[in-house]
């Protein structure tokens, strides 16, 4: 091997080593990782985008693995913030506390569970909660649209819906079937709402459900069904979600954050921005904003939690916990 070649090799290996080493040292700004609900994803994306525009250089990463997956990762340190379309269950909370992690729930918006069909299916415009129960219950006998209503065509009903890690799935089964997690299983299940949308858009006699904000992305390829929840047939529009007419199928969406992380400037300002931006962006991304007082309360709660986290970080451990997460009552308990 000639001397020149040795020099070339030293140069290559040296620069690779420097790159790897330098990269590890130069990591100054914190990467904020958000994982969780696909129902909340359109809002998360819009909020993150606005945040990055206002704070150039901010490092935001969003993953989507369903509410259950996001909350699990939050308690395993694989995510800093979890988006959830349902409150944390008692079991999840216990597991998180067992590993010494405290989390804070911040409600950010409301949405509804939207029933969607193919635009070519003009035979049906509204379903009742009882009909939804008959379709989705585990011991269902509904295989065609005619099984549902004698007036409808005898076409096979092809179903698309979220998978078991989804908060939407647990919420829907609790409200419609009566038990969280109880559902027929012979349908196309996915945590990816885009696949549900594609499935329904490609099949004339299909029916699917997901968070109503996802429908805003393709108004002409899917048709929302009205649901008769006792107030007559109501579509899950932001107005109907806000004033409660869509109520049994409308729910609060949350972001969960690990309390200690609020001591970090980047995490805190992102969560705070999430609350403020949700108030502005919720409507245009297809959600219903919460009442203004609710946002104000979240902001107060956040800054209190930040003070506490900073106090803890400074070694002030005798101070009593100002915010007991468990004490914060979240509407729509999940009995499991």
């Amino acid at each position: 091997m000639t001397g020149r070649r040795v020099r070339v090799w030293r140069c290559i290996t040296g620069s690779v080593a420097a790159l790897l080493l330098g990269g590890c040292v130069a990591d100054a700004r914190r990467v904020v990782v958000i994982d969780g609900s696909s129902s909340l994803y359109p809002l998360t994306e819009a909020v993150s985008d606005a945040f990055v525009r206002e704070n150039p250089g901010a490092r935001i990463v969003v993953r989507v693995s369903g509410s259950g997956g996001g909350l699990r990762r939050l308690c395993e340190d694989e995510a800093d913030i979890a988006g959830a379309s349902r409150p944390m269950t008692a079991a999840e909370m216990a597991r998180c506390r067992a590993s010494g992690r405290r989390v804070l729930a911040v409600p950010v918006a409301r949405d509804g569970v939207a029933m969607v069909i193919n635009p070519a299916n003009e035979a049906v415009a509204c379903l009742t909660l009882a009909e939804l129960d008959r379709i989705w219950r585990p011991d269902t006998s509904v295989a065609t649209w005619r099984d549902l209503r004698p007036a409808l065509p005898a076409e096979t009903l092809r179903l698309f819906g979220p998978g078991t890690d989804s908060g939407t799935f647990r919420f829907f089964t609790r409200v419609v079937v009566g038990r969280p997690g109880a559902s027929r299983t012979d349908y196309y299940m996915t945590e990816d709402d885009h696949l549900i949308a594609r499935g329904v858009a490609g099949d004339r006699w299909s029916l699917g459900y997901f968070g109503s904000a996802n429908q805003a992305a393709h108004p002409d390829r899917l048709r929302m069904l009205a649901v008769d929840t006792g107030f007559g047939c109501v579509l899950p529009t932001p107005a109907a979600i806000r004033d409660g007419r869509y109520s049994p199928l409308a729910r609060d969406l949350y972001v969960y954050v690990r309390s200690v992380l609020l001591a970090d400037e980047d995490v805190f300002s992102f969560v705070e921005h999430f609350v403020s931006a949700s108030e502005l962006l919720a409507e245009e991304t297809g959600y219903a904003p919460l009442p203004a007082a609710e946002y104000a309360r979240s902001r107060a709660l956040l800054s209190e939690a930040r003070r506490e986290a900073l106090g803890q970080a400074a070694g002030d451990r005798d101070r009593p916990h100002a915010v007991a997460v468990e004490a914060r009552r979240v509407p729509g308990r999940d009995p499991s």
Binding site: G23, Y41, E45, V52, R59, I60, V62, R63, V64
Partner: peptide, 10 residues
């Protein structure tokens, strides 16, 4: 990542 606001540097 589904959404990522920056190019990975390390």
């Amino acid at each position: 990542a589904t959404y990522m606001s920056f190019a990975p540097q390390t």
